[in-house]
Write a protein that binds this DNA or RNA. Structure first.
Ligand SMILES: [Mn+2]
Ligand SMILES: [Mn+2]
Ligand SMILES: [Zn+2]
Ligand SMILES: [Zn+2]
Lengths: 118, 118
DNA sequence: TAAAGAATGCAATGCAGTTGCATGCAAACA
DNA sequence: TGTTTGCATGCAACTGCATTGCATTCTTTA
C-alpha cells in the first residue's frame, strides 16, 4: 500500500488530500490511506499543507528537505481549479518581528489563479 | 448581542475563537455568536485568521483596513499560551511568483513563542 | 514452524462549522 | 395606536474532516 501511495505521490503535480487518495485507490480503506500519509509525514517523506480549504494537503518533500524553517517555501491555492501547489522557488523572506517573539515555524499560503487557469 | 460582542472584542489583546466567545458569553447561544462573527466579517469589522489550530480566530480590523492584499499583516500563534496575535507592524513582503500566477489573498502564519511567554 | 510485531479494515467518536426552521422582538407603516 | 414586516435569536439537526479502539490479517524473525 505504501509503495502504491508513494508511486502515486511521485506522479502528482499538485498536493493531494486524503479524499484525492481515496478517489485514486477506491479499493483501499480510507483509514489505511490516512495512516500511510501520517507515517510518511512522521518519517519526513511528505509535508502537510493547511491551505485553509478545510482539508489538509500532502506533498512529497524535496530532496534534502528537512522541513525546517529555512527550507520553507510558499504554497499556492488556485481558486479556480482548487489545486494547491508547492512553489519551492518562492522562498519566504525574513520577517521583522516585535521584540522577544521567537519563530519556530512559518507558513505562507497565497490564493488566486494559477498559471494553468489564467 | 452584537454590541456586547463588539465590546468584548475591543478589550482583547489576542484574536478570539468561537469557543472563546462562547466561554465569555455562556448565556448566549453558540449559533448567535457564530452568526455575529460572520456578520462582522461580512461588514469588514473583523477579519478571520486560520492559524492551523483547527479553530478559526477573529480579530477587529485596524482603522482604515480594507482587508485587501496590501493591508495584510502577519499573524503569530504562540505554542505556549496558545494565543494568536495580529502583528500589524510586520508587513508581508512581496513574493516572487512563477509566471502567470495571480495573487488575490495572502496569509502568513508564524508559530513560536510570544513575548509574554519567553 | 511458532511467536512476535506491524499493517489493514471496520466501527465509532470528536469537533468545528454550517444550515433549516420556528419563535421572539422591534422598527416601520397605515 | 394597532398592524405588518423584517431581522435577530434559539434549538435541533447535519456535514465533513480528523482521529482512535479493536479485531483481523499479513510479514518478519527466532
Ligand atoms: Mn510544499
Ligand atoms: Mn490580524
Ligand atoms: Zn488553477
Ligand atoms: Zn505566548
Amino acid at each position: 500500500m505504501r509503495l502504491l501511495v508513494l508511486d502515486f505521490l511521485l506522479k502528482q503535480q499538485a498536493a493531494v488530500s486524503l479524499n484525492d487518495l481515496e478517489a485514486a485507490f477506491h479499493r483501499a480503506d480510507r483509514i489505511t490511506l490516512y495512516r500511510t500519509l501520517k507515517t510518511f509525514e512522521e518519517k519526513g517523506l511528505v509535508h502537510s499543507i493547511a491551505d485553509g480549504t478545510g482539508s489538509v494537503k500532502y506533498a512529497l518533500c524535496e530532496e534534502g528537505c528537512a522541513c525546517a524553517p529555512e527550507d520553507l517555501h510558499v504554497h499556492f491555492h488556485c481558486n479556480i481549479c482548487n489545486e494547491t501547489y508547492c512553489l519551492p522557488k518562492s522562498r519566504i523572506p525574513e520577517i521583522a518581528l516585535p521584540e522577544n517573539f521567537k519563530t519556530e515555524e512559518i507558513s505562507l499560503i497565497m490564493k488566486g489563479t494559477c498559471a494553468s487557469c489564467s
